[in-house]
Design a protein around this nucleic acid. Structure first.
Ligand SMILES: [Zn+2]
Ligand SMILES: [Zn+2]
Ligand SMILES: [Zn+2]
Ligand SMILES: [Zn+2]
Lengths: 156, 156
DNA sequence: GAAGATATGTTATAATATATCAACCCAAAA
DNA sequence: TTTTGGGTTGATATATTATAACATATCTTC
């Protein structure tokens, strides 16, 4: 496990880099990163936190991009399906991927106190081997760990 | 990983044993396994599958136990809080625990074809150690693996 | 330029879950 | 014994999350 995301970072660069990567990936895979899809990804990157679909929709609505639920759910579906964002099932919230284009099995560390969600990765070898022995074919994984992040742990 | 739950079993005994265990555990911990709570657990055990809250409510309603959402959500909250049932976040569904009283970190194997959900356990040592190194305090885990169960894999 | 695939606009509704407050029950304290 | 407090239930209303359905538009390809 690495890259826990609790550290400081240059956020403007972080957003710009991620958007560029997404554009390049979409171009390479002939995926259409349309204005709405791009803007939703940008919002998730800018906010840098897990956001509810309706929180995102409120931003889109304030910008005149769209105010109906399907607008945001369609964009999120595209982003999640293509690995640019993840859904945090425990919160019904969405988060920009911290490892775009890397083909990874994310592990989310969710702080119940400050709501920060960090994306880490875990080698899937063990899990996959164990499941293979039983004959189960793994297609997707949801691994979410809830607790206290280092900062909130100290504060408590 | 063990006890995958895809095998045949004596279901009547399975239900009876689980209910007895739950009664004993509640008595020991001074928890109130009230009629509604007991019946919801029994429904989950009998059905032996992940059920939506409103599916369970339909059964309760047909039995005159209650027809309003809080009835079932309160019972589920009790059962989940006390380890008698689990929520499958990926499906917004609930399942009787296959290891009641064992203090375990469940791993769910969800078949996308037949909707079977098997509960396994995985040693948490690695995950816990890795998180500890980062200072994150693990309180709860959600580990859900979606794919094809052995039967559906063969059929496909 | 017709056909097919993909994306968007729009309205409505489904599915999941919680807030709130009054009433009830039971056990322990005064 | 009466009171008090915690936990549970009944009942109404509402909040939150997500999708169905269908028309329109846009772009590509034949
Ligand atoms: Zn990711
Ligand atoms: Zn925190
Ligand atoms: Zn369990
Ligand atoms: Zn199956």
């Amino acid at each position: 496990m690495h890259d826990l995301g609790f550290a400081q970072h240059d956020h403007a660069a972080c957003v710009a880099t991620a958007l560029s990567t997404a554009e390049a990936t979409c171009a390479a895979q002939k995926l259409q990163l349309t204005p709405t899809r791009r803007r939703v990804l940008e919002i998730l990157l800018e906010e840098h936190r897990a956001m509810g679909a309706y929180d995102i929709l409120a931003v889109l609505s304030s910008e005149g991009i769209g105010s109906q639920p399907p607008v945001v759910y369609r964009a999120l579906d595209f982003l999640v399906s293509n690995g640019f964002a993840h859904k945090i099932e425990k919160r019904n919230a969405y988060l920009a991927c911290a490892h775009p284009g890397e083909d990874h099995s994310p592990v989310f560390l969710i702080c119940r106190a400050c709501d920060t969600v960090a994306e880490a990765t875990l080698p899937m070898a063990d899990l996959r081997r164990a499941a293979d022995e039983t004959g189960f074919l793994i297609e997707t994984t949801v691994i979410e760990i809830e607790g206290l992040c280092p900062d909130c742990r100290k504060a408590a």
